[in-house]
């Protein structure tokens, strides 16, 4: 399996719980690390900047979050000098066209997925990651 570690960044604890169940059932990755606060995820990434082994392969990122939101996370993420290519997927319940357009402006965003996440959607992501790595 190419996708070893996936970060889930979402303030909604129920969503994180459900995502974890779905992901492990679908064998999307080997390990999941979840963050309710994007700031914490960012700090973790910074800490492991030079250790590709413990950096995630994919990040599932929610947009609407208190404190640091998805956009702010992306802006800070770009500034990091990571050597590893990480697939970022926006995963949100927002169906606002403005959000979808804004997501396209970030090159690092591989795809924009509307909640709810389903087994089928995870399959597509798997393929996307496969293409990249």
């Amino acid at each position: 399996m190419k996708n070893k570690l996936t970060y889930i960044i979402d303030d909604d604890k129920l969503t994180v719980k459900l995502m974890s169940i779905l992901i492990s059932k679908n064998k999307f990755c080997e390990e999941i690390q979840s963050y309710n606060n994007a700031q914490h995820a960012l700090e973790e990434l910074k800490k492991n900047e030079f250790d590709n082994e413990i950096l995630p392969d994919a990040i599932l990122l929610d947009l609407n979050m208190p404190m640091m939101d998805g956009w702010q996370f992306l802006d800070e993420f770009i500034e990091l000098s990571l050597k590893k290519e990480i697939c970022i997927f926006i995963m949100t319940s927002s169906i606002d066209p403005a959000d979808i357009e804004k997501a396209k402006e970030y090159q690092i965003v591989k795809d924009y997925i509307e909640k709810p996440i389903t087994a089928k959607k995870l399959d597509i992501l798997c393929k996307l990651i496969g293409e990249i790595n």
């Binding site: 995502m19 169906i95 909640k115 996440i117």
Partner: peptide, 23 residues
């Protein structure tokens, strides 16, 4: 926007629950 986002985030959670129950 609030309605669409906040209600949707809950309903999508619910449909995810249904999804795992079904599976």
């Amino acid at each position: 926007h609030i309605v669409s986002h906040n209600i949707r985030s809950h309903t999508s959670n619910l449909s995810m629950v249904v999804d795992v129950i079904e599976n």
